[in-house]
């Protein structure tokens, strides 16, 4: 017999023991130590910067997210995150149909605004059927109606020093209030709207009543719900813990959630 085929059984046995040895190595805790190391976190965060830079370079600033037909709607549009903000104040607003709800537009604007839901509905509206992509992996298609954020910012006369828009929310997760932020490219994008209707109904509480952000080229956690203030700022450093959003501050989600 050939000396290559002779020790076949031996080789299989050796292969088996190799695999077993590799599996038994105490790799697990070592891997987690690598995951926590500051230098590693820094290298890993470069991926986000590269995705953001390349997507910005390749994509027209007004390039639209896909819009769908009514026949494409998800039968059920699921909710996520906060489904009912805690506290008597929100419950009282909900009981009055959000008639007294006000959304402040403030920060680096020449004309700060306090908008009622009636004010918002009186502005020109945009309706779009888009796909909502959750960071977890699921998608749902819904029809949204609301005012373009660019119109609101124009009415408030955004100052030239503004670089980011911060969205303050009425819901708390744990002790902290939810917030999000985006740059001016996404803030002024034609599909970035403050939506008060989902599938031609008033926005349900689970989906962010009375008003939520739609920022269609990014993942779901950027779409801040229960909006109570819109703030123009020059830097995100002094907002929250400085990373630009509730989840960004806490678990290190990407601030640029285009991927």
């Amino acid at each position: 017999m050939n000396d290559l085929t002779l020790p076949r059984r031996q080789l299989i046995a050796r292969a088996g023991s190799l695999v077993a040895a590799a599996g038994a190595l105490p790799l697990l805790s070592g891997c987690d130590a690598i995951n926590e190391a500051p230098a590693v976190r820094k290298i890993l965060s470069m991926g986000e910067k590269m995705h953001r830079a390349s997507q910005r370079a390749l994509t027209d600033r007004d390039a639209l997210a896909r819009e769908f037909a009514r026949t494409d709607l998800s039968p059920v549009f699921r909710s996520n995150g906060t489904r009912l903000p805690e506290g008597d104040a929100y419950a009282a607003h909900a009981a009055r149909g959000f008639a007294d709800w006000r959304v402040a537009v403030r920060g680096l604007v020449a004309r700060p605004l306090m908008l009622s839901m009636a004010d918002i509905r009186a502005m020109p509206q945009r309706t779009q059927i888009t796909r909502h992509d959750c960071v977890e992996g699921w998608s749902a298609i819904g029809e949204w109606t609301g005012v373009q954020l660019s119109r609101v910012l124009a009415a408030a006369e955004l100052k030239g020093s503004a670089r980011y828009i911060v969205f303050r929310c009425a819901d708390r997760i744990g002790a902290a209030e939810y917030y999000e932020s985006c740059d001016l490219i996404d803030a002024l994008h034609p599909q970035t709207i403050l939506a008060w209707a989902l599938n031609r109904q008033l926005l349900p509480i689970a989906n962010g009543a009375p008003l939520r952000l739609r920022i269609e080229r990014q993942l779901g956690y950027k779409h801040a719900k229960y909006l109570r203030a819109i703030e123009a700022v020059a830097s995100l450093e002094k907002v929250g813990a400085g990373k630009g959003g509730y989840w960004e501050d806490r678990v290190d989600y990407e601030w640029y959630a285009g991927i």
Partner: peptide, 11 residues
Amino acid sequence: GLAMSPGFNAT
């Protein structure tokens, strides 16, 4: 992978 990116969908 890229097809799952909401940003790249617009691209």
